[in-house]
Design a protein around this nucleic acid. Structure first.
Lengths: 179, 179
DNA sequence: TGATGCATGTAATCCGTTACATGATTCA
DNA sequence: TGAATCATGTAACGGATTACATGCATCA
């Protein structure tokens, strides 16, 4: 799935500018399983408009460039539905953290503890962000949101528990070794 | 983290050919959090050799190209340790499945059920593969392996449970709707 | 006999990120 | 006054994938 489809998907919820789409990808529902930068969003939107899959309305603003608000068209809905019809690619997960953990034979115990703590903090932050989304009434209205948040919560919570357990073990060992 | 570092990491466990490295990335421990194709592995190995971070020994074979077995050097160990010293990037997770689930307003209930079943099958397969790794005595000797497998097991199991629950709900609803 | 595994490599291409370019507003 | 937010866009670059190229061995 490419950025064009992603933009179309976001616009299927609500019309938005490129800037707002980026925010949704960074802080909203989509942030948990997708990435995209301005460098890919703006060109995608331009393309989508040229192909008639979205329309464009310029909102005048003082002291800022016009806000270009995009909205999905019927052709856009059809294109999105078509993209959704193909069998989705498998999930892709990349983790430098796990790579580092596999390479324990290169690391000191204290380095490992720091890495674990960082990972734990990251996961907790992601969980917190997910709960923020939950609190946002705009998200709550779509049935897919509830599913995605439930999934994320289940997986992240399990990860956090495991990390906490392992971290506690390591700290105990470190204490014993220091004696 | 790039493919060069990944190759170095794999070679820190055991000498191997490009082909074997690919297999490790596909089926072994690394498969759960990294991807790489021949198109990136072979050039990486050539570079690494040119830089003196690995050595190369050609094993003659009948009916096949020579097997080029790479082994990490002292300089390679040092380079790897250096790569490991920098703070690792955050985990990256891309999921077309979750995107599709968010787009439920475009899908029929039966399509959603199929997507869920596919995801469930994928996750179960990954769990099974992890347990295969566990059974492999070669993997068991390194402490990092145990950690990584434990993490994967925890996270995947949580995901599977959630998917099972949601799938059951949907199937019940589908039955009721059919009445 | 046809698929799968073993074995190495290159070139074209894709898709996206990073960095650059610009500039007003608002909040601490 | 300095950082963050709002707002849009382009160009260079990077990093990897896909497809291509080759060919024997083994197993069903």
């Amino acid at each position: 799935m490419n950025i064009r489809t992603l933009c179309l998907g976001i616009l299927s919820f609500q019309e938005a500018s490129g800037y707002e789409i980026k925010k949704e990808i960074e802080d909203g529902m989509f942030s948990h399983f997708i990435d995209a930068s301005y460098g890919s969003i703006y060109p995608a939107l331009t393309m989508l408009n040229a192909e008639g899959l979205v329309t464009l309305r310029a909102e005048e603003q003082t002291g800022r460039p016009d806000k270009k608000v995009y909205a999905i068209t019927d052709a856009g809905h059809a294109a999105l539905a078509k993209s959704l019809a193909v069998v989705p690619a498998r999930d892709k997960y990349k983790s430098e953290f796990l790579f580092e953990m596999l390479m324990q034979h290169y690391l000191t115990p204290s380095h490992i503890i720091v890495a674990l703590e960082k990972q734990l903090a990251d996961q907790r932050q992601e969980l917190a962000q997910m709960n923020e989304c939950k609190a946002d009434p705009a998200e709550g209205t779509f049935p897919g949101c509830e599913f995605v948040m439930g999934y994320g919560e289940a997986v992240l919570t399990a990860g956090v528990s495991y990390l906490e357990l392992r971290l506690a073990e390591l700290k105990t060992q470190a204490l014993k070794a220091a004696e």
